[in-house]
Design a protein around this nucleic acid. Structure first.
Lengths: 338, 338
DNA sequence: TTGAAAGCGCTAACAT
DNA sequence: ATGTTAGCGCTTTCAA
């Protein structure tokens, strides 16, 4: 834990500290010979530039904060990992901003940009943890920010997401194609745009097939395993049961499975189950879950790339980046038994 | 994104920057009146101290790196969350150091302490990403470091873990108590101390019950869902099948379930399954998984508390902190069918 | 109780 | 191609 500074390296190499700095950042502006001398000295001394010194000069921390309401969700978590990988590749580190649903913590993380703790923010919630003055355009008052998965209803904020409406529509169409007419839905948090969009997609697909939506079949979940379990319980209680359940997240589908199994229903024999997200576990559910895959890796890469552009002051050609989803048919959906 | 500094606050409050600094850090050494004046100015200006300035002076970043080989594991992930919560409570942020198994990244994260990017390290792997000179005590050459879950075989490094041997023993005893004699094991990574300890615990419990261990029943997994699936496939192939499978992680148990289901085996009717970790999903498996719960929240808190002590230069009374585990009996284990 | 001034480690403008 | 020097924002002696 010694404190090797640029001075020590300069001394060893027999050059000025400026030359050391240049050899490291701007190799082109230093002669080949000195550069090698410096590099050798760096190695010998075991020198790593002090972030504070660098940061104070450059006003760049090399950090990105990812603000997430709930990291315990496998899907969010997959995106985080992807973001981490992409950020690392670009020389950035990711600060994990799990807010545990607290607005106070959300604000604390947001403040990290102000305190230069981080250079930019990737936001996973529809809630903007920044104060906006109504009379100015929002985008200009915000720190470098990219919004992921849950589109903030505000223009000028770059957003990376999928077409939730279309995706839910395809999922629904798949069930309809299997002959299902009585299709239930367990939604996510209804204050989240993603869940509202998915519900809309479902309704449209039903309508397009000339099928009526039974409002009693629409149960409010919260994207969590527990809520999937409860939602399914609720649906099974009904005299007229659905033949298929569309869960707006794979986590809820897991809860759905456990409720069905508890009550003696087989999947997909007695009930078809459709998920959303394609989390890592989905293919290992018993039976493997039919679901809509979100391009987690792509989302992460895009978020980071965009954020770096914003941080760099680049002009973006558009705000909204819609990435392709994909219906993944596995064993949890089957033709309606007549 | 303006740049409000201590100077601005000082100007607004009509005091020197020294006084502003003191009012914020050392409120006792400033008169009540001026403190209020300063605080008001801080609020008005929307001032947040610049981390670099502070850090340069204090040589403290307020960051902790958690170095993890694979965050996608739900168990590791639970610990990370707990660490995040605990760290936040103490005013620290957590840098997510997912190494994706790469030693290079591991080293990069370890270097963050040297570059003052972080003040300390929490390590989740048995591999020390630091160069140690053999002739000096290791602990003195290391940055503030706490080791979690996978004890590093090196004295002087504070470690937070559970008694894996005892825990696996209890799990095994539970199966034996249900009448099982032919018990198979799917291990984790065998280069991990945790897996080795668990295997030892298994062997001891079998021996204590006077039961022979069939070496063919011991399959090497990797703690992943996939390896649990493959391991189970392998076991089912055998002419003499076990009646119970002890998976050294819940993730593997999930893979085990899916293999069993694929091949028409019911849990626990045809096969009892025991997990390890008690990840969030375990209770929602179908059937709910019998497993050994690790005290994730406690592990996280202890890691952070210890690390802060180490960073603070406090003398620790011991190196090894063994936290209590707990056998959680759910529906995946049942008495042996005669 | 308060302020002036030095300096933490580094980069970049300017000088050579 | 290299060196000198100012200063990033802050805390902390030291002096008043």
């Amino acid at each position: 834990m010694s404190s090797i500074g640029i001075k020590d390296v300069a001394a060893i190499a027999g050059v000025s500290i400026t030359t050391v700095s240049r050899a490291l950042r701007n190799p082109g502006r230093v002669s080949e010979a000195t550069r090698e001398k410096v590099l050798a000295a760096v190695n010998k001394a075991g020198y790593t530039p002090n972030k504070f010194g660098v940061g104070l000069r450059t006003a760049k921390s090399g950090n990105i904060v990812a603000i997430i309401p709930d990291v315990s969700d496998s899907f969010n978590f997959g995106v985080i990992r992807a973001i981490g990988r992409a950020a690392n590749k670009q020389g950035y580190s990711v600060l994990l901003g799990d807010t545990h649903g607290s607005e106070e913590r959300e604000r604390a993380y947001a403040d990290m940009v102000k305190s230069r703790h981080a250079d930019g923010v990737i936001l996973f919630s529809q809630h903007l943890p920044f104060e906006i003055e109504a009379d100015k355009p929002a985008a200009q008052q915000l720190p470098p920010l990219v919004n992921s998965c849950e589109p903030v209803p505000m223009p000028g904020i770059p957003t990376v997401t999928i077409d939730n409406t279309a995706a839910a529509g395809e999922a629904t169409a798949h069930l309809i194609g299997l002959g299902h007419k009585n299709i239930a839905v367990i939604t996510g948090n209804m204050d989240s745009p993603s869940s509202r969009d998915r519900l809309q997609g479902f309704r449209r697909a039903m309508q397009a097939a000339g099928l009526a939506v039974n409002e009693r079949y629409i149960v409010n979940g919260k994207y969590t395993v527990e809520s999937g379990h409860q939602g399914t319980n609720q649906l099974l209680l009904r005299r007229d049961r659905p033949s298929a359940i569309f869960c707006f997240s794979d986590e809820m589908a897991l809860g759905c499975y456990s409720s069905l199994q508890e009550h003696g229903f087989g999947v997909p024999g007695d009930m078809s189950v459709m998920g959303f997200d394609d989390i890592h576990y989905a293919r290992h559910f018993s039976p493997p879950l039919t679901t809509v895959a979100q391009p987690v890796e792509d989302i992460g890469t895009h978020c980071v790339d965009l954020l770096l552009k914003v941080m760099n002051g680049d002009q973006l050609d558009k705000d909204l980046y819609i990435l392709p989803h994909k219906l993944v048919v596995r064993g949890s959906t089957a033709p309606l038994r007549q």
